[in-house]
Simulated scan of single mutants.
Amino acid sequence: MPGVSNPKNLYADTASSQMSAAVKGDLERIYVPNLRGNSVTVIDPVAMKVVDQFKVGRSPQHVVPSWDLRTLWVANNAERTNEGSLTPIDPRTGKPSGPSVKVDDPYNMYFSPDGKSAIVVAEARHRLDFRDPKTMALQYSIDVPQCGGINHADFSIDGRFAMFTCEFNGSVAKIDLVERKVLGYLKLAMPRTRLKDTPVKPNSKGEPPASEICTATKGMPQDIRISPDGKRFFVADMDADGVHVIDGDSFTEVGFIATGVASHGLYPSRDGKKLYVANRGSHRIHGPRKGPGSVTVIDFATEKVLAEWPVPGGGSPDMGNVSADGKWLWLSGRFDDAVYRIDTTTGDMVILKAGPEPHGLTVWPQPGRYSLGHTGNMR
Results as ranks from 00 to 15, higher is better:
189 A>W: 06
90 D>A: 08
379 R>H: 15
330 W>Y: 15
150 I>G: 13
54 F>I: 15
193 T>H: 08
7 P>F: 07
235 V>C: 05
54 F>C: 11
115 G>M: 04
326 G>V: 07
264 H>M: 06
17 S>V: 15
186 L>M: 12
67 W>A: 05
76 N>E: 04
256 F>V: 10
378 M>D: 05
332 S>D: 15
19 M>V: 14
362 T>V: 14
373 G>R: 00
252 T>L: 01
66 S>C: 07
97 S>T: 12
86 L>V: 00
105 D>V: 02
35 L>R: 12
135 T>V: 10
314 G>N: 11
275 L>Y: 06
56 V>N: 06
338 A>L: 02
378 M>H: 08
47 A>I: 07
195 L>G: 01
367 P>V: 05
309 W>C: 00
106 P>E: 00
165 T>L: 09
328 W>S: 14
196 K>P: 00
327 K>A: 14
147 C>E: 06
70 R>P: 03
149 G>S: 11
30 I>A: 02
51 V>I: 14
176 D>E: 06
317 P>Y: 05
126 H>L: 06
92 R>S: 11
99 P>E: 13
78 A>E: 08
42 V>E: 06
345 T>R: 13
272 G>K: 03
51 V>R: 02
309 W>R: 04
221 P>V: 00
99 P>T: 12
12 A>V: 08
139 Q>I: 09
259 T>A: 10
79 E>C: 05
330 W>S: 04
9 N>V: 12
180 R>Y: 03
216 A>L: 04
198 T>E: 15
140 Y>E: 01
30 I>C: 01
281 G>R: 02
319 M>K: 12
63 V>G: 03
236 A>V: 09
276 Y>R: 00
251 F>N: 03
67 W>Q: 01
202 P>R: 08
310 P>C: 09
377 N>W: 01
117 S>I: 01
325 D>F: 12
11 Y>A: 08
22 A>S: 12
220 M>S: 15
103 V>W: 02
241 D>C: 09
182 V>C: 01
349 M>T: 14
65 P>T: 08
197 D>G: 01
318 D>P: 00
53 Q>C: 13
324 A>Q: 12
